[in-house]
């Protein structure tokens, strides 16, 4: 059943590094919301842009209208980051004092950091930036639990489980199960459901 949104539209950004399963996460989340009657617009890019670079999916969730596939600057309501520095990158462009951030703490170093040309901020610096720039924030080690489940890429599902727990969006285990029954091959369903459950327990 469709419950009313805290705000219409809800602007959600899912960000990470190419190969972390950003697109899959945005599809699953959008599917869960369309199934219960919302109008969802997703904006994203794939192709060369994802080779090791920063990636972003914009989700606009509304009860009434189709929106631009690009969220205006300073207007994100929720940022889900599969990589912590990517949370900051999105936050400085799309953040505002009311934004909520859910971030995976596992770092993926950019090439410039590996070569020594740039420094990567410490987790403390990242946490303190979250404190200053968000209304709510959660930093969880989704990659470690995904590795324990057998595949680091499951961290995207762990994050969706955690997102459900925040209750920022009208999603739950039932809507997740319905969506993966429809769009995931049968061999991936059980492990995804487990990853979702593990995620809900991390907050």
């Amino acid at each position: 059943m469709k419950v009313s949104l805290a705000k219409d539209p809800m602007n959600v950004i899912i960000t990470g590094v190419g190969g972390q399963g950003n697109v899959m996460a945005s599809r699953v989340l959008a599917g869960m919301l369309v199934n219960v009657g919302y109008i969802v617009t997703i904006g994203e890019t794939f192709g060369m842009s994802q080779r090791g670079g920063s990636v972003m999916s914009h989700l606009r969730i509304s009860s009434t209208s189709v929106l631009s596939p690009q969220i205006p600057q300073g207007r994100a309501d929720i940022i889900i980051a599969l990589e912590p520095v990517e949370a900051l990158r999105v936050l400085i462009k799309y953040g505002n004092p009311a934004v909520a951030v859910l971030a995976n703490s596992r770092m993926v170093y950019p090439m410039g950091v590996i070569t020594g040309d740039f420094t990567y901020p410490s987790l403390d610096e990242i946490k303190s930036a979250f404190e200053k720039l968000t209304a709510h924030n959660w930093l969880i080690d989704a990659t470690s639990v995904a590795v324990d489940l057998g595949n680091p890429v499951l961290s995207n599902i762990v994050m969706i489980g955690a997102l459900a727990k925040t209750a920022l969006l009208p999603i739950d285990r039932r809507s997740f199960k319905k969506e993966i029954m429809r769009n995931l091959s049968s061999d991936k369903r059980q492990i995804s459901l487990t990853a979702f459950d593990v995620g809900t327990k991390m907050l």
């Binding site: 090791g52 670079g53 920063s54 990517e86 950019p110 090439m111 740039f118 420094t119 610096e125």
Partner: peptide, 9 residues
């Protein structure tokens, strides 16, 4: 604080 993230192979 944010290091750039360029594309790589």
């Amino acid at each position: 604080l944010i290091p750039p993230r360029e594309q790589t192979f």
